[in-house]
Design a protein around this nucleic acid. Structure first.
Length: 267
DNA sequence: ACGGATGTTATTAA
DNA sequence: ATTAATAACATCCG
């Protein structure tokens, strides 16, 4: 469940449960998820006896900041969550990293092992190395327009491209375009320039509303697409049939009645 | 049993 | 330099 709102929800969960705890042990490390030539032993050594002093997030990446200013960075891939465990609670199945605090612990659970774990001492260099664009919640209107409007790819592909804007994935891209009444295949360069101001507002509205509702899709407004993003469900706006197509290899839900293909001649 | 799934990345090609 | 298409990764679920 890991696009920006889910990851932000995990970050807040971390702040509530694990902030200022001291890491006394590191275990259940899945070496497959360790990136940039980290190995389980050295990771454990780097983290042990450190305090969890803060947190951050950029796009879909979660940052846990230690007392010596190291960043333990977690990416959830397609699945996963954090679980704070009181002493005696069972360690969840598919736990890939367990930070022990003595009387409790924090588990990073990642069923499909497509998640990633990094350890960096500098946030900037990490963003650069991963080639991440600005965070979707912080991006400025004109920046969004500048980064997208000249592209010759479908708007949905651009929204999901983490180097253009970080944090939006398949589900929220569909929601954003549904609420903007834009066909997901519309080429960026063919959209009217003034759509990008509206898009910036929509992105912020949708992501903040999702975060307020703890990224629980059932709690989203009934006017949104996401609660209806299932095969055979009608469009919440016009009652028409939702179409399912593929864009950039991903299943795309949209309403052909509400989301007309936007076209503008360009020279 | 086959195909698909909230993601990223390498490869190959246009 | 951009972009698309495809596969691969690992595992569960319907």
């Amino acid at each position: 469940m890991p696009e920006l709102p889910e990851v932000e929800t995990f970050r807040r969960y971390f702040e509530r449960t694990s902030l200022n705890k001291r890491i006394s042990s590191v275990s259940s490390i899945d070496g497959l998820l360790l990136k940039d030539k980290q190995d389980p032993k050295s990771l454990a050594k780097e983290l042990e006896n450190r305090l969890l002093a803060g947190s951050g997030r950029h796009g879909k990446y979660l940052f846990l900041i230690t007392s010596d200013s190291k960043y333990l960075i977690i990416h959830f891939g397609m699945t996963g969550y954090l679980a704070y465990l009181k002493d005696g609670q069972d360690i969840p199945r598919y736990t890939r990293l367990l930070l022990g605090f003595g009387d409790s612990s924090l588990a990073f659970v990642n069923t499909r092992r497509l998640g990633k774990i990094f350890l960096y001492s500098d946030r900037k260099s990490f963003l650069k190395k991963r080639n991440l664009g600005p965070d979707a919640l912080k991006i400025q209107k004109c920046d969004l327009r500048d980064r997208i409007s000249k592209r010759k790819k479908p708007i949905k592909s651009a929204l999901m491209d983490q180097s253009i804007i970080a944090g939006i994935g398949n589900l929220y891209a569909d929601e954003i375009l549904f609420q903007l009444s834009v066909h997901p295949r519309s080429l960026c360069v063919e959209l009217k320039e003034n759509i990008y101001e509206k898009m910036s507002d929509k992105i912020k509205y949708i992501l903040t509303t999702a975060i307020e509702r703890h990224a629980e899709i059932r709690q989203y407004p009934g006017t949104w697409l996401l609660p209806h993003r299932k095969k055979g469900y009608p469009c919440p706006r016009c009652g028409g049939k939702i179409n399912i197509i593929k864009i950039a290899g991903r299943t795309t839900y949209f309403c052909p009645q509400c989301q007309k293909y936007q076209k503008r001649l360009v020279y």
